[in-house]
Nucleic acid binder design. Structure first.
Lengths: 211, 211
DNA sequence: TTTGCCTTGCTACCTTTGCTACAAGCAATC
DNA sequence: GATTGCTTGTAGCAAAGGTAGCAAGGCAAA
């Protein structure tokens, strides 16, 4: 239990003592391996998840199983969907896949309503999570609606760089194509052009962002 | 004041007595004309808006002023953005334009925090609004990410039909092109194809959805 | 009635994106 | 070192979507 509390102190310092104690008492830690699917379209959620380690990738699926990358969740962040769905026991709309071995504190959704009214720091946290996810979705919409593939690719690479904190991005062209719902050939083509413009340096299984 | 309360009873029946009384006491009614811009990108929000008449169109803007339609707000609905931005006094990300003369009850955002903790029916309303708007954004993303222009056009027309409750949609090709961030020629082309497939009947300044 | 504006239809043409196919390169394994 | 599989580079082609330009028709104000 003390274990949970120290994790909360590290990654969720904005929580007040009362909240941290409650989560430490009622929550539990769960770990996931890279590749695990921790949430799937259509599934019911029973817990709110507070990420404390690793990285989770959120994506949406098309009718024919196409994927479309939306955003990453890092330590200190929670899944907005788990709030949304929690309250009314609704199904989720997104898939969440672990990209780096991951650890999260799970809190049964039964406590949600009570916490929202009783604890101010939780209330602010939830609203903040909503706001940032809402914003994230808006950015996604803007990028697809207003930008062509080359711009989206550049935006995507920057997002990767920020998420993983390195200009050396380990990824294949194929994976990028999946995330952007494009095709491998197109991505390779555009990356070549970017390389000619000195924007990236291409390696096998990796891309280096220049400047 | 009684006026406000009867409007609330009609369009927001899920509110409990206490909440309706409070809104009646602290809120005020404001009317807007078609074409009015009631919220603009970058603007601070001072009030939460509960629509009681007319129709408001939410759209996002690209860097070069391109528009992109997202969804409509009807009586009984509130702007999720006004919740999001309210709490932390953040700027809005969307534009809201009145498409049909509109009336709304405005409630200063100062009451938001208090209401959330004190009033359950308000709390549920806010979460519900979040969920439906979140879903709406997800649908928008899916439609742009996975579907070609002809499918998006069909989806758009159905959305219009549902919003205005009529298969006879008063709109020009140019306006549709703006909403979908496409071009007039493309929309006219696709509409012609739809007409040949007996899916629509084209009129001047209007489109009739068949079946 | 005439004038002018807006809407729609249509043509020609270009760019972007996507698909198929194939070759070359790297890496791991036997 | 040969085999196998995954990744990347390229070429050729097709479809979708965007641009420019112009003509015709409707509608309304002068």
């Amino acid at each position: 239990m003390e274990d949970i509390k120290s994790k909360l102190e590290k990654y969720y310092p904005q929580f007040d003592e009362e909240l941290k104690d409650l989560i430490a008492a009622k929550g539990f830690v769960k770990t996931f391996k890279a590749g695990d699917i921790i949430m799937q379209n259509g599934q019911f959620l029973k817990n709110t998840m507070l990420i404390t380690k690793g990285m989770v990738k959120l994506l949406t699926e098309g009718e024919e199983g196409e994927e479309f990358f939306m955003y990453y969740l890092e330590p200190g962040q929670a899944c907005a969907l788990s709030f949304v769905c929690a309250t009314k026991n609704k199904r989720s709309d997104l898939d969440a896949i672990v990209t780096e071995d991951c650890e999260a504190i799970l809190l049964p959704i039964d406590y949600m309503d009570e916490l929202m009214v009783k604890n101010k720091s939780w209330y602010y946290f939830v609203l903040d999570t909503y706001r940032s996810r809402f914003r994230e979705l808006l950015d996604v919409i803007k990028s697809v609606a207003f930008h062509s593939m080359d711009e989206r690719l550049a935006y995507y690479l920057v997002k990767q760089k920020n998420a993983f904190g390195s200009s050396y991005i380990s990824i294949t062209h194929e994976q990028i194509a999946n995330d952007l719902n494009s095709s491998r050939v197109v991505i390779s083509r555009l990356l070549k052009q970017m390389e000619q413009k000195q924007k990236v340096k291409l390696h096998r299984n990796a891309i280096e962002l220049l400047a």
